[in-house]
């Protein structure tokens, strides 16, 4: 007897559940939990990570992120305005900058600016935080410039016309009328950029950091070397999650809110 399409779909769904549950049970039964726990999650090592993982490593990650974000936002705004400028040279310069820094991996940019330039010129980075944060913010600014530009372009054209009709200069209209509206539009995507930055700071550890400027990822790796155990990495991952999860939830909430408002 031939099954109807809907009945077939229903049986397929049941079959999927059964297979998934069977797979889960198999994993739980066949994994050597004790060995896994010994290699990746030992309580005494977990305890050893504290408080330094928070007071030093997480603090450094936050410092790199905040510096990178502040720099990225300022330069991003500048490049966004240049992209929208009526002066062709500005548009061209900003577009080239954005393409270059979005096209090169952050790791490579970090190595070129952090090591390459000092070796080539004899100039030294005055501060290990800046050595990591400036390349980070240069790359972040390229991404943020595009986000900000999209936000400014999403403000209806009539807003600029109304502001200019009242006698405001272009700059005045931008700062009092357009950018405040664009900011509301771009807060969710910018928060996402912030989350990406938190994770990207882990790459800064390639720049031979000192004990004082270790970030979370480096702290975890060094912990692995000292203990011959993966637990420090797991703890570092959990600390990252503790920072990123609230932010991604915040973005989801903001997006639901704007959706509800535009309805």
């Amino acid at each position: 007897m031939a099954l109807s399409k809907r009945k077939k779909a229903m049986y397929m769904r049941y079959a999927m559940y059964v297979v998934s549950i069977a797979f889960l049970i198999a994993v739980i039964l066949f994994i050597d939990w004790e060995r896994l726990g010994n290699a990746m999650f030992r309580w005494n090592i977990v305890k050893e990570q504290f408080p330094d993982i928070l007071t030093k490593a997480a603090k450094n990650t936050v410092v790199f992120t905040v510096l990178g974000f502040a720099g990225g936002l300022s330069f991003g705004l500048l490049f966004a305005l240049m992209r929208l400028s009526s002066i062709r040279a500005y548009r061209w310069f900003a577009a080239t900058y954005i393409e270059i820094f979005r096209g090169i991996p952050l790791l490579v940019t970090l190595l070129i600016l952090g090591f390459g330039i000092p070796i080539a010129t004899g100039w030294k980075w005055p501060n290990p935080y800046l050595q990591g944060a400036i390349p980070l913010s240069l790359v972040a600014s390229a991404y943020m410039a595009e986000t900000i530009r999209a936000g400014i372009e999403a403000v209806p054209k009539g807003q600029m016309e109304a502001a200019r009709s009242l006698g405001m200069s272009y700059t005045r209209a931008m700062t009092t009328i357009i950018i405040p509206q664009a900011l509301r539009i771009i807060v969710p995507p910018l928060t996402n950029e912030f989350v990406l930055l938190i994770k990207d700071t882990s790459l800064i550890s390639v720049l031979g950091v000192t004990a004082a400027t270790k970030d979370l990822a480096r702290f975890g790796r060094d912990g692995v070397n000292q203990t011959a155990n993966a637990t420090p990495l797991i703890v570092a991952g959990l600390v990252y999650l503790a920072m990123t999860l609230p932010l991604t939830q915040l973005v989801a909430w903001m997006e639901r809110k704007t959706k509800a408002m535009s309805r």
Binding site: G158, Q159, A162, Q181
Partner: peptide
């Protein structure tokens, strides 16, 4: 303007 163009913020 036809579309008012008040500043919504």
């Amino acid at each position: 303007f036809q579309s008012f163009n008040l500043f919504p913020h």
